[in-house]
Amino acid sequence: MTTRRKVTCAVLAVGLIAFGIWAANRISGLSEDTQATNPLFRWEYLFTRERTPEELWQNTREHLELTVWSVLIGIVLSAVLSALVLRFRWLRAAIFTFAGVLYTIPSIALFAILSTYNSNFTAAIIALTSYTLLILTRNFVAGIDAVPQAALDAADGLGMSRVQRLAKVEIPLAMPVILTGIRVATVTVVGLVGISAVIQLGGLATYIFDGYNRNYPTLMVLGTVATIILAVALDLVIRGVEWVATPWAHRRVAR
């Protein structure tokens, strides 16, 4: 088992145990009546309530829309920022500081402020996009920087123009790192979308906030689990894209 996998498993285990303790305490603090009427998860809500599938789909779609749009816009903006960093090295510190500051702004504050000047959807997209910039730009630049000097020298020596070198050598070779950046940004945004519930959006996190306000744990559990499933699914999809798009990176046979 790789170290990364061990860490992932450990984090998941700790999370599950913490959730279990929290749930157990919560239930034990309630009277038996409440426990009977308001359990941690009511399966009927998921399986027999008529409007649930439609609501669930609605929320998932909203969650996906917010995620995909902000990541796509983030990719475009980060590509521009990366090009600037790579072309004008002295801009590097300025651009990374800018992206870093955006990344550290408390998310709730950002959502709240932006929504007073924009429509809620626009506000959410702006806020979520700004969180992707640091991750994406860093990975884009690191990916291009890591292209082996010998490959660049060969590209020049064989007579590729600057544009040909970028398109045929640098970007393809940076692709694994670029796609990793996109994957991390996507998973991060899936989590962050929840915060946009403060401005009446929030996709699946709407369940969590509703459940909290109405003291109805079923909704909180549903929202949490659905969000996790969505994040893992997107992670797997992008890993699949990585696998298909960069066959050379994982076809290493013993010499």
Partner: peptide, 14 residues
């Protein structure tokens, strides 16, 4: 129009 071979070979890994 000039062949070029370098020490690190510089094949394109992709």
């Amino acid at each position: 129009s000039i062949g070029y071979v370098i020490q690190q070979i510089g094949l394109f890994p992709h």
